[in-house]
Design a protein around this nucleic acid. Structure first.
Lengths: 230, 230
DNA sequence: GCAAAAGTGTTCCCAGTACACCCATGT
DNA sequence: ACATGGGTGTACTGGGAACACTTTTGC
């Protein structure tokens, strides 16, 4: 089968920078090991060619499902990369996405996947294929700005979480410490968290209050010129 | 001539949302009228197909030069749009850019261009071809956030400008009033503007001090955790 | 001299920051 | 009883917001 066009066309791919928060509070990126040339054996972002009549977001979700088994995750476009030399096979434009997953659900799955997918700590990534190192750096920068302005951090945590978990998440992503009292004051005043009738269990210290993020409340506040801004 | 591939490929285009500031302080968008189907006769964003081995930014600049005569302008990627139905001719992915020009230079040029390019006031755009209305709305949203965090507003003004012009620019883009004294205080304290040895001339009122934006100073400040944030 | 915009300082308030101790739970 | 993290309040400070009059220029 062949497909013919009047003018040359670049290939179009999608690539995903998937972030997950380790139980030890280290931000991880999901990579897959390439089988085929170019860059056989090297690590790369999960992704692949956009199919005929397939949307970009749809393609990103499909590739993630196929290559890592992950479905139903937060996924948003980063930007397109189109330097003509970025792929040695020929002119290829890739649309990069960044995604956030709750590692409490997916931790085992990806590690044992047949396609050799693995989580790597953000600050100790291996050499990456193509221009994927640039894409990862851009994704980290975007994650850092976005997490300060929109409540996407919750995507990295389980549905029920403690304020300390949330604080550590912000400290990890932004690589800077927060004052415990000020952090709690700020977040509770935003009035987008709901205290559950539940506490931590089986911890060797005072059990912490569990909270959940209230999307509906956030959307209300959203209207009335309110800003998240951590 | 024909080009053949093993798998179908979407076409790849670029589209540019070019903003200019009218002398009457109205934000304008540059549109071109289409000659050919689909959407013949309708207004659309300047743009077109990415050529073989051509970078995305390069393609955007080329199309702008060809279709509107504008060169050397601020241009940054917005995002890619790839809904399969967005182009009736077939699966087409477009990478959208937004651009800023100083209308004091380009005002006449675009209006008299052979390809029927025209500036339209942002709030009274005609119906647009493809999904270009969505792209324009996204570009406006991005412009509004970006102009508050990075000093890109100066791209819309002549090299020498008054503080009142700058204030009106922000008021126009953000569609909200600023207090004159507070605005000046804030901007001058940032220390990225340089007062010139020059004043306005031929105005029927007290002549205003002219300033220019000092890119070098901005880059210095940039390092030392300083934020623009208007 | 009048119309039109330039230019300039002070007060108030809120939000961010810094900071230290007691409490609950499991071992 | 002890180790571990959970949970809480206050004082200070700096930046944003509100606000009105004098100055300069061309006509």
């Amino acid at each position: 089968m062949a497909y013919t066009y009047d003018y040359p066309r670049p290939a179009v791919t999608v690539d995903c920078v998937v972030f997950g928060l380790d139980p030890t509070d280290c931000l991880q990126v999901l990579l897959i090991q390439r089988w085929l040339d170019p860059f056989a054996g090297q690590w790369a972002l999960p992704g692949g060619f956009v199919r005929h009549q397939e949307g970009l977001v749809q393609a990103a979700h499909r590739e993630l499902r196929e290559e890592t088994g992950i479905a139903d995750l937060f996924l948003e476009q980063l930007q397109a990369y189109g330097q003509p030399q970025r792929d040695p096979r020929g002119h290829t434009v890739t649309v990069a996405f960044y995604a956030l997953v709750n590692l409490w659900n997916y931790q085992v799955r990806a590690a044992t996947d047949a396609k050799q997918a693995r989580w790597w700590p953000m600050d100790r990534l291996p050499a990456l294929a193509f221009d994927h190192d640039v894409i990862v750096q851009d994704a980290i920068a975007t994650l850092r700005t976005t997490i300060r302005h929109r409540p996407i951090g919750f995507e990295l945590l389980p549905a029920k979480f403690t304020l300390t978990q949330l604080q550590r998440l912000y400290e990890t992503v932004l690589a800077r410490p927060f004052d415990k009292r000020n952090f709690r004051k700020k977040l509770l005043k935003l009035d987008i968290l709901v205290a559950l009738d539940e506490k931590e269990t089986n911890v060797a210290h005072r059990a912490a209050q569990l909270y959940r993020f209230d999307q509906a409340k956030y959307l209300e506040r959203q209207q009335t010129e309110f800003n998240f801004d951590l």
